[in-house]
Design a protein around this nucleic acid. Sequence first.
DNA 1: AAGTCGATATCGCCA
DNA 2: TGGCGATGTCGACTT
Lengths: 238, 238
Amino acid sequence: MYDVLTQPALDSAKSKIETGLSNAALTTVLGPCSVDYNGRASSTLDLGERHVMLKPDGTTLVHTDEGQKPVNWQPPGSDQSVRVDDQELIIESVRTSPDERLEVSFQSIQFVAAVTLQDTHDLDLVGTEADLKRQILKQPEMIEPGFTPKATERKTSAGAVDIFGEDADGNIVVLELKRRRVGPDAVGQLKRYIDALNRDLHDDAYIRGILVAPSVTGRARQLLSEQGLEFVAATPDC
Amino acid sequence: MYDVLTQPALDSAKSKIETGLSNAALTTVLGPCSVDYNGRASSTLDLGERHVMLKPDGTTLVHTDEGQKPVNWQPPGSDQSVRVDDQELIIESVRTSPDERLEVSFQSIQFVAAVTLQDTHDLDLVGTEADLKRQILKQPEMIEPGFTPKATERKTSAGAVDIFGEDADGNIVVLELKRRRVGPDAVGQLKRYIDALNRDLHDDAYIRGILVAPSVTGRARQLLSEQGLEFVAATPDC
DNA sequence: AAGTCGATATCGCCA
DNA sequence: TGGCGATGTCGACTT
């Protein structure tokens, strides 16, 4: 099912959009508009030509001709409505918790398209942190000879540790995994887990912390060294 | 300028897309397709109906009828091309550094639209961390009586501190600002700055660290307490 | 509903 | 160009 209107009057456009909304169609609207947003923050966007996408799950996206991110949006689950008011076609999207409202006001419409999509397949993605974890559990020696994983997602008072294990000497080892080159934030994260475990175990045993990632930035390397933490290079298969 | 083709043959669709690409048009293509991506990670997506947007800045977005984020994409600056090969229309987007390739293969096309957008205005957004910083610099007493900002973005060996100042007793105070409720990561960030300053100044003066945000999570509050850091509630005007 | 963290995060700024 | 941190981050998963 597809349906396209070019240069429709505002009332015709309104009918088409409403039909799209009630038919669970993906609806796109293109034309000169201004945009107002109020919610977690507030924004205004003066008159210009943009592309608006309304999804049947309640998502609204306002795209300019630049950038990967929409200039304005409303997340899935929002309530969408359309009205014609004072020579403008206004698309409104509202949600609660948090309270947020998006209004797109069109002066005219270049085209409207409403299409019901048939799509039963999901994305299959590889090369994630979860893939790296599987690799390490399958070949623990890639960390170092004698490394033995004991648990994944082991809970600490500072959160769950990616991989918790022991080295050849029986020392506790905490691994923090990252799928890409890491900066200071990842070092801070690993340090929080080590500190928490030292407290949780109220034991003076030495706990090793190893950051596992393809590479580290200079400042992250320095922080690792200052905190007595280690680094092992590894990249998720892809 | 707008132009829409419904149910075009693959060759006609190819011509229209190519015209769009050379005219700096926003081009949308809708139809049953499969998608392959290889780059920082890898993904495949089996046959289904999706909406593809090609922007003149090199952005490519593949949207299903669910979710705010595209199921596949290529960032601005990528090279876009289209070809018909073995009864398929294939949109290819490639970039380097990092090397990444996206291929969308259409079996048929429901419609193609190419439009050159006129848009001269930028988004005006308020309620950001920068707004919160301005509020504090204008009214430092909102942190505490006697607080005096001395510098913003003061450099430390662990990065730049949001606001650097002194309290009524002459103690150094470091503020880390967040526009929304914060978790453990923000505490780690503040702690890195405090540690770095303690090292940088090689001085045993007590340095206070204050997290300024609308609120904190329970675990973040506990981490603050353990690290001897403080919290002040503040929300950016909106 | 809130907390926590990963992400092909994206984006902007600055060295 | 890489490093670094903000984002109306989003999204998935757990509690």
